[in-house]
Amino acid sequence: MTCALCSAPVHTQFATPELVLVTGQTADGSGLHFHNPSGTDAGTRAAVLPVAEFERFFAGRGVSLA
């Protein structure tokens, strides 16, 4: 997924689907910075995940805000 700023629906087996805001990529391109407003603490509200790990939860659709 490539975008300047994207809203990305995610899902897990434990929670209802929600939206997170992808705010950028890591310098080496291997990870994504994102904002999850429903995170339980500062570390889960503003986080970085490797792309492969994020793809496990990405619902396959999104909205580009660029």
Rank of each mutant, 00 (worst) to 15 (best):
L5T: 09
L5F: 14
C6Y: 05
S7A: 11
S7C: 01
A8Y: 09
P9L: 01
P9N: 02
P9R: 01
P9W: 00
P9T: 00
V10W: 06
V10Q: 04
H11A: 13
H11N: 06
H11S: 12
H11L: 06
T12E: 12
T12A: 13
T12D: 14
Q13R: 07
Q13D: 06
Q13C: 10
Q13L: 08
F14E: 15
A15V: 08
A15D: 15
T16I: 03
T16H: 11
L19P: 01
L19Y: 12
V20S: 08
V20E: 05
V20I: 15
L21A: 01
V22M: 05
V22C: 00
T23Y: 04
Q25A: 15
T26W: 03
T26V: 07
T26K: 10
A27Q: 15
A27T: 14
D28Y: 07
D28M: 02
D28E: 14
S30L: 09
S30H: 05
G31Y: 09
L32A: 03
L32N: 02
H33F: 12
H33S: 10
H33N: 10
F34Q: 08
H35Q: 09
H35N: 07
S38M: 02
S38H: 11
S38F: 08
S38T: 11
G39Q: 13
G39M: 02
A42Y: 10
G43M: 07
G43H: 15
G43W: 14
T44A: 00
T44G: 07
R45F: 12
A46P: 04
A46H: 05
A47C: 06
V48R: 02
V48C: 05
V48G: 04
L49M: 06
L49R: 00
P50R: 15
V51P: 00
V51Q: 01
V51W: 04
V51T: 07
A52N: 14
E53S: 07
E53C: 00
F54G: 03
F54A: 08
E55H: 13
R56V: 08
R56F: 05
F58S: 11
F58K: 00
A59M: 07
G60S: 14
G60M: 13
G60W: 05
G62D: 08
V63Q: 15
S64W: 02
